[in-house]
Design a binder for these strands. Sequence first.
DNA 1: CTGAAAGCGCTTACAG
DNA 2: CTGAAAGCGCTTACAG
Lengths: 321, 321
Amino acid sequence: MANMKEVAKYAGVSVITVSRVINNPEIVKKETREKVESVIEKLKYQGNQAARALVSNKTRVIHVFIKQEIRMVDPFGMHFVAGISDALSEKYYSFLVRRDWDFPYKCDGIIAMGISKDEEPLIKEKFSVPTVLFGHSDLDIDSVDVDNFSGAYDMTKHLIESGHKDIGIIVINDINRRYVFDRLNGYKKALTEHGIPVRSDLIKFGENNEQGGYYKAIELLGESNVSAICCTSDALALGAIRACRQFKKNVPHDVSVTGFDGLGYEMLTDPKITTVQQPVYEAGKELAELLIEKIEKPETPMIQKMIKPQILFNNSVFMKE
Amino acid sequence: MANMKEVAKYAGVSVITVSRVINNPEIVKKETREKVESVIEKLKYQGNQAARALVSNKTRVIHVFIKQEIRMVDPFGMHFVAGISDALSEKYYSFLVRRDWDFPYKCDGIIAMGISKDEEPLIKEKFSVPTVLFGHSDLDIDSVDVDNFSGAYDMTKHLIESGHKDIGIIVINDINRRYVFDRLNGYKKALTEHGIPVRSDLIKFGENNEQGGYYKAIELLGESNVSAICCTSDALALGAIRACRQFKKNVPHDVSVTGFDGLGYEMLTDPKITTVQQPVYEAGKELAELLIEKIEKPETPMIQKMIKPQILFNNSVFMKE
DNA sequence: CTGAAAGCGCTTACAG
DNA sequence: CTGAAAGCGCTTACAG
């Protein structure tokens, strides 16, 4: 594999000139430049990334920081990583996934996901390279998020427009996550906008799994006359549907159930769940692109972006009117 | 960020000794080693990978070569990458996905997937670093594969033991892929072993998608009296089920249909498809571990491993007896 | 517009 | 068991 020195010798110039032709071609005289370029072509010269990294203090490696709680093999994690991988590979950046705040290797930038509200300060403290966040925060940090508020708002509105008024909600029981309240607030706003009072007895907080959805739906069905249950995850919705079945309520005819995520669980039940589809792949991809931008042009102004999710229409919502 | 020189100064040794503590701790005197280790700890020294890469000609970057035909966002690609990511990240190797045979950056090793039979020679020709293959080949190259033969054999045997004798098969129409014939041969062996003649009129080759499964199932249902159709992918099985419906055949009561893959498509239909579940995540993970082994201990003998897939029992097979 | 020199932070023989 | 010296392949001021 030819190196810069050989190219220089062959072209009758110094290595510095070769370096310039590669990095700042415009400051090299045209003839010199063309001569060097033809030699690069001929010798199939490929820059040595390691040498470049050493001298320029760039590694071309990105760390993807994903909190332990998030399983890599779940659809959520996989879609996220797939989006990142596609964007980074395009630009020849490599990456690895780290699970701890401390890490023995350097990188050019970090993509962080699954950070809870109380951990946000750690980002500034622990990460000394450009960092972008999946989610949103009060920090002045670049981020891309799924617009959870608008997703829950749209879904609740869809229920209302389908003729439902008594709409319960099962909220994920993790008060340290912003998206939890974003979704709850979207629900509240849709109700309020349509003149439906927000009733605290229709708001239940449950563990984010099938069991949690089951228990909280049991409560809703036992204590109230809900005609629709808005679940803030598909896992919760699966449990809610089981609860309806136990109450001899047909889904969707007697009770409508909606989900949130749209990454596969919505298909596991009959009827399939009408849900809010999170664009996780897209979020990962945009985060990676944003990070590269920050690394290569540090003066880029801060960007905090929201991606609007779409409703995935299936068969768990009954149109009353 | 502290460098080796500072660590050396602080510990009262030379940089060489620090280097040894990191790379060959066993050849350094215990007290010296412990002293250096404590300084590394105290100064939060992180090795500079770029410098290491330059001098040792190691990049700590792996290229995952995935042929263009395979979409990264399909479950197959995502599970594969997830397995690789988990294994590599564990050892602090980063990776990127490449889609072309030519590539401008160096790496320590390559994980290749989706290589067709006629492209196998290109591996030796184009890849000059340790390479492991998802699949199997006639080359002396390390590989991990799903045991497609045994998967198809097990499934066919399951059909036979459920009382089926007239079993058709829809084979993926790509004669350049080894797994295609592995699956067909598994089917044949199961039949032969149970004294059932292999009938060429029950073997159809179709495009690997829903349409392909539909057309070929139409042929089977029209020309023969099959009571079971063994599809060599879940996409094919989806189409086969549609064909049965058109023929007013109930699945599974009139015709059993089986799939292959088990990565999500099997849930898209009612009844859900009994299928062979490919351990793609595991294959990716084992390949990455194998590759690291090859890189770090080049004298490791060649390994060509098969992972046995399991049948995912759903509701598309009828037990006749 | 071009080049000589220094240096990025490591590792690798080679001595001792 | 430890260290001095050379060098990996580049880029970055600094001269000219």
